[in-house]
Write a protein that binds this DNA or RNA. Structure first.
Length: 279
DNA sequence: AATGCGTTCAACCGCACCAAA
DNA sequence: ATTTGGTGCGGTTGAACGCAT
């Protein structure tokens, strides 16, 4: 028996969201909070699929989102995390506050991938495209561990949960003398290790037929060599983040906002670009 | 100004997981 | 143990945009 579609295809609007729709969705979610997404469009007065509403909210309307291109430090972090985690964009995004999996995925495909190729690095394996051609001395500085210009204060000795790393039987495949920016022996929680029993992966991710296409994380990463990465990968980092936008604003006006205030404030943020507020 | 081409990114699609029934 | 509905995730698409000619 096939699955019921997530929403009635008839009468459901698709395509770009209008400002009016955004307003309705934001108004509803700020008022009622996130509940059952399937019910959201009906309750919010939208002719949209619940899934579409969720996507619009998480990828675009969420007030804690940063807008704009990833900076150098973030980009380097994405590269490092990708080497560790592979194409698990949601896991990567979880370590970059204010960034979405979609955004990172897009940025990877449009910018970073090309950059790495240009640098002679395979964006999938994170190994040199022509191992003979590139010696460690020739590795571009951008591939060094510490992102240039990174001013993040990074606690030392952060544990990376074992479950967040791919298991990889080819762990020893790292070429001798190839240092790159890949820390070794990183601790990552077991439950996020990519394997056939991994609960979170998509079919294509775990599909053997796609293995050559999917990004294999480098198993030899270690946060010891990359304090920034170790900090970001730590659970402490995630726990410490203040995701509740309502309590943080430059002038404090958003503290304990009323529903109206928060909507108005939020819409203002959208007008100016939320990134301007450094939420 | 018009056209073509390449790039970007918001949005969609399909699948898998998980919890509840 | 099985079914079902809700949600999350990663891959893909296509409209919009920018740039060169």
């Amino acid at each position: 028996m096939g699955r019921q579609p997530c929403c009635d295809k008839l009468g459901v609007k698709k395509g770009p969201w209008t400002a009016e729709e955004d307003k309705k969705l934001v108004n509803f979610l700020l008022t009622h909070g996130q509940c059952c997404w399937r019910a959201v469009p009906k309750l919010a007065g939208l002719r949209r699929c619940g899934k579409s509403c969720r996507l619009r909210w998480t990828n675009y309307l969420r007030p804690d989102l940063k807008r704009g291109l990833l900076n150098d430090a973030e980009e380097q972090l994405v590269i490092d995390l990708h080497a560790r985690l592979g194409n698990r964009w949601s896991k990567i995004a979880a370590r970059l506050p204010g960034r979405t999996d979609n955004e990172i995925k897009n940025h990877w495909n449009t910018h970073i991938k090309k950059k790495l190729i240009k640098m002679g690095i395979d964006p999938i394996t994170h190994e040199p495209l022509h191992k003979q051609a590139i010696t460690p001395e020739e590795m571009p500085c951008e591939a060094s561990n510490q992102p240039a210009g990174s001013d993040v204060n990074i606690p030392q000795n952060m544990d990376i949960p074992e479950h967040e790393v791919y298991s990889n039987s080819e762990a020893s495949n790292q070429p001798a003398g190839l240092d790159m920016n890949i820390p070794r022996n990183m601790n990552i929680p077991e439950h996020e290790i990519s394997s056939n029993s991994d609960g979170g992966g998509s079919a294509s991710e775990n599909s053997p037929s796609n293995e050559s296409q999917s990004a294999e994380p480098n198993p030899n990463y270690s946060e010891e060599d990359d304090p920034l990465l170790s900090f970001i990968l730590s659970d402490t980092f995630l726990e410490d983040l203040t995701w509740d936008f309502s309590t943080s604003s430059e002038d404090g006006s958003a503290d304990n906002p009323t529903e109206e205030n928060s909507l108005a404030w939020f819409m203002d943020c959208k007008d100016f670009g939320v990134q301007d507020f450094e939420l």
